[in-house]
Simulated scan of single mutants.
Amino acid sequence: MDASSDRELPSTQEDLEIRAVSAERLTFFGDAVVAIALTLLALELPVPEGSTNSEMWHSATSHRDSYLAFMISFVVIAAHWRAHHRVFRHVTATNSRLTSFTMYWLLTLVITPFATDVIGGHGAFQFRFVFYAVVQSAACLLFLLMVREIPRDGLARPGTAPEIFSRSIHRAGMVALGFLISIPVSLVTRWAYVCWIVVPLVDSVIDARKGRTARQSSQD
């Protein structure tokens, strides 16, 4: 009886170690892909040309849409990475669904530099805008599926607060909503970009007010 238990224990411990290494490798791979996406983003920046200060300035201002698109995409990719880091530091195992969702999510991040070139171009505003918004919506929704899978299959470290996952799901959902709402708005106005900021911002304000109300109620 005891000998049988001793034989099973190393197998169980080995399985846990393999699952932990798998989770670390998936996290490190994600970090590497994000770094590559940011590098590709910078490599696509147009370089101002000219032999005089005036020509250089004119060339730089003519590329302002590309530079703005770069800054937007840098913030977007950085936000994706921060959200990923916030969640995956608690992950100690993986399964096939989480791995698949992660691969598809990373695909959207690698596509983002190309989408940045598209949205930074001239003409056909609606097509360019919708393409970019669809890519980012897909990234947010895939991240949402990734986060939902972690507590669902017990892939997180024991004792991890459930609020970590519920908050991340909520945030990803609201960001996705901002991108999705901007798609029909872009058919009416070029100011559809504002939706990407306003929707998450309004949600943050509402969430903060709820938090203050809850604290006041607990104190009373």
Rank of each mutant, 00 (worst) to 15 (best):
V134W: 01
R152L: 08
R171E: 10
K210S: 10
E163I: 07
D117G: 06
G159D: 05
V135I: 12
L98K: 03
V110K: 00
V205H: 08
Y193D: 07
Y104H: 12
V202I: 13
S204T: 13
G178M: 04
L155P: 09
I164N: 05
L180P: 02
L107P: 04
W191S: 13
P113I: 00
S182L: 04
A161P: 06
S204Q: 10
V202D: 04
Y132G: 00
W191R: 09
S168G: 13
F165L: 06
G120W: 05
L155M: 08
W191Q: 11
C140H: 09
V134C: 10
V185S: 07
L144Y: 15
H122D: 08
G178P: 00
L141H: 01
S186R: 03
V205T: 06
I111G: 01
P162C: 05
G121F: 03
L106T: 01
A139F: 06
L145W: 09
R97L: 07
F125W: 13
V202F: 09
I150L: 02
P151D: 03
L109P: 09
S204F: 15
A176T: 02
S182N: 04
A124L: 14
A161Q: 09
G173L: 04
M103V: 14
E149F: 07
D207Y: 13
A124R: 14
D153W: 11
S218M: 12
T116S: 00
T102V: 05
Y104E: 08
A161W: 10
F101K: 03
K210Y: 15
V198N: 07
Q219I: 15
R190N: 14
H170K: 13
